[in-house]
Computed example of a mutant assay.
Amino acid sequence: MRTYRVAVVGTGGIAEAAHVPAIRAAGERAKLVTAVDADPARLAVFQQKTGVPVAYQSLKSMLRTEKPDLVQVCTPPATHADIAITCLEAGAWVLLEKPPALSLAEYDRISAAEADGGPFASVVFQHRFGSGARHARNLIESGALGRPLVALCHTTWFRDQSYFDVPWRGKWATEGGGPTMGHGIHQIDLLLALLGEWTEVRAMAARLDRTMETEDVSMAIVRFASGAMASIVNSVLSPREESYLRLDLTEATVEVTHLYGYHNTDWRYTPAPHVTDERLIRSWSAVPEDVGSSHSAQLPHLLDAMDRGQRPPLSGAEGRAALELITALYRSAFTGTPVTREQLEPGDVFYHRMNGDVKL
């Protein structure tokens, strides 16, 4: 078994709370060997807490000296594209925190820096990897729950004004968007994992209460290639916080309610009135393992791909999917028109900037 040498770039809260535990949970497959941060005080605290043996303030110096196999990028969104490209060009695989880039144009620059057989850049969308989601996806894809018809995808969270007073937050040029981009993106990706490709988006976005450039709430209606329709709500104004996903299919309703991560018990299956086979109904909830949605659940899949020299999950087109739907949502909200995938091309201003240079 190969042990991959891992570097963390950006030593803020998400690195310590999620990335370091995931590296440690991987056991002998991954070893945290170094960290990078432009803030020497923050870097020193991270070193003291994690015991990482050596640290750098320069990304290029770290790559040249340490030659890590994998770099986990935990910096603010505006820095992701340049960091990812630098790491890929140095021969390191990359795991990017969400949002992976500020625009489709930036994401496509990252993809262009990948090489056949690796290195590749993958995105942290951990909700796909919990056992509850993987089980639901298998049931839906097998047809066991019938045909998908209606879906709800809600990320209704609360962030006070002080959260957006951090200099890079709430700005199009540095965060890329508001709760749609920075918070709802996880649930949106899970919705796409379960329902597949979308064909049309109609949306609205507004800034109702917080002082910032971006929206603090958005709503969208999405039509999928299957014909199913979904309602998406993203908010940072909601005192009772909840992440909620509901899919109504011809044979059953599937729901998951959580906040920042789920376990099997957070998933519910309700049979349609005509479905009366109790053994069948019980089988929907019979998941042999209970793996919560977390960075620790996703990282082994990336390491497996590194073992094989193959494209990992949530890289390339799969890693781009949520960003693409969010681009369509913003385009629809700012233009007041429905949006299809074909419109999101390099010649369109929204391909390059999420707000299309329109002020909210």
Rank of each mutant, 00 (worst) to 15 (best):
A252Q: 01
Y260S: 15
R240V: 08
V291L: 14
E242P: 11
G261T: 07
F224A: 00
V222T: 01
S293D: 09
D248R: 06
D209P: 03
A206D: 12
V256T: 10
E255N: 03
V254C: 12
E213Q: 14
I281S: 09
V222P: 01
S235H: 07
H274Q: 14
L247N: 00
L245F: 06
H295N: 15
T250N: 02
E289V: 11
F224G: 00
G292I: 08
R246V: 01
S285T: 09
V287D: 11
N234A: 05
W267M: 08
G227I: 00
L247G: 00
L245G: 06
A230V: 00
L245H: 09
E251Q: 09
L249W: 03
R210N: 07
H295F: 15
V236Y: 03
Y244I: 03
I281F: 10
D290E: 10
A220E: 06
T214S: 04
A228N: 01
V256L: 13
L280M: 05
S293R: 05
A252K: 01
V254Q: 05
E242M: 15
W284F: 05
A220P: 05
A272W: 12
A220H: 05
Y269V: 00
H263T: 12
D248W: 04
A230Y: 00
I232E: 00
A205Y: 03
R268N: 08
A220T: 10
V291R: 15
H263P: 10
T214I: 12
G261L: 09
P239H: 10
A205V: 15
R246N: 07
P239A: 06
P271E: 10
E278R: 14
D209K: 13
P288L: 01
S243I: 01
R282T: 03
D248Q: 10
V287F: 11
R240P: 06
R268H: 13
M229P: 06
P239D: 03
S231W: 12
Y244T: 04
S285W: 13
D248S: 12
V275I: 12
S235R: 06
T265P: 12
